[in-house]
Design a binder for these strands. Sequence first.
DNA 1: GTAATTTCTCAACCTAACTTTAGGTCAAGA
DNA 2: TCTTGACCTAAAGTTAGGTTGAGAAATTAC
Lengths: 151, 151
Amino acid sequence: MPPAHGLSIGALSERTGLAVSAIRYYESQGLIAPWRNAGGQRRFHRADIRRLSFVMIAQQMGFSLPAIRDLLAQLPGQRTPTARDWARISAVFRDHLDQRIETLQRLRDNLDGCIGCGCLSLSKCRLYNPDDRAAAKGTGPRYLMGDRPEG
Amino acid sequence: MPPAHGLSIGALSERTGLAVSAIRYYESQGLIAPWRNAGGQRRFHRADIRRLSFVMIAQQMGFSLPAIRDLLAQLPGQRTPTARDWARISAVFRDHLDQRIETLQRLRDNLDGCIGCGCLSLSKCRLYNPDDRAAAKGTGPRYLMGDRPEG
DNA sequence: GTAATTTCTCAACCTAACTTTAGGTCAAGA
DNA sequence: TCTTGACCTAAAGTTAGGTTGAGAAATTAC
């Protein structure tokens, strides 16, 4: 049973489902800031369970760890964050999700057109879309289906 | 000007927008299989432009290279793939996209509920969802928002 | 025929998000 | 007290999807 004040890293791991090594890594990335006990071991607030849960949800939504760190930086530093604090930040998720969904839907619609016409390569193929291209991870210009902007 | 039979890797790079190094890498991963000329240089079919374009689109949709390789394996080995061949394979994209969109929409809906109630951590928080959890990249069980299945 | 490109292979490097390993310390139970 | 398990640091390893660099050979351009 953990002492009244401060969870050990193992206890936090159990509560969140995260690996101990992952929690240490998150600390190294500035996502969480435990204090140390007399023996040098990490001790965490109970509120950190919520903090790490937030990290996991944000990751599911496609945020990078640095981006999540920036989101978390908007939380109050001194007091334990309230439900309202979390909700304010969560609203950012909403926009992010909306954008991702929209991109995928556009991709799907274009794909439907291409399945219909069987093209997948004609010069007017709508899978060639600069917006969606930009949404892809790779860098540099990529001309889909062999069509270049200047034909 | 490339010879009538076979594009050089540079020509294919120009046509697709992919880096030469990426094309070589794709060959190493079994996504494309050029032949060699007398001097040992790679030569590609014109149909490979379409093949690589397909690879790029599939990547945008979230497929891994091994998965794309498996998709491409369904193409006819001997003759040049027709529009119908490509369309048949593209239909797989449709399902994949549908699933991804659905997952994100569910995530968004749950998030809306959480923003509304401001919880983001209560035991009934719907962001705790096994399906969506499974859709995340990480391995092992993860209990979101500090709630465990068995309370 | 020479110069400039392109291409070749192979190995090393890169980022993100972690995990694993090695070698040692701290804490809790019998 | 002894022992077991949890914890510590630092560095190296892992996977995906490539890029970069070195040194040599092939091809193209003039």
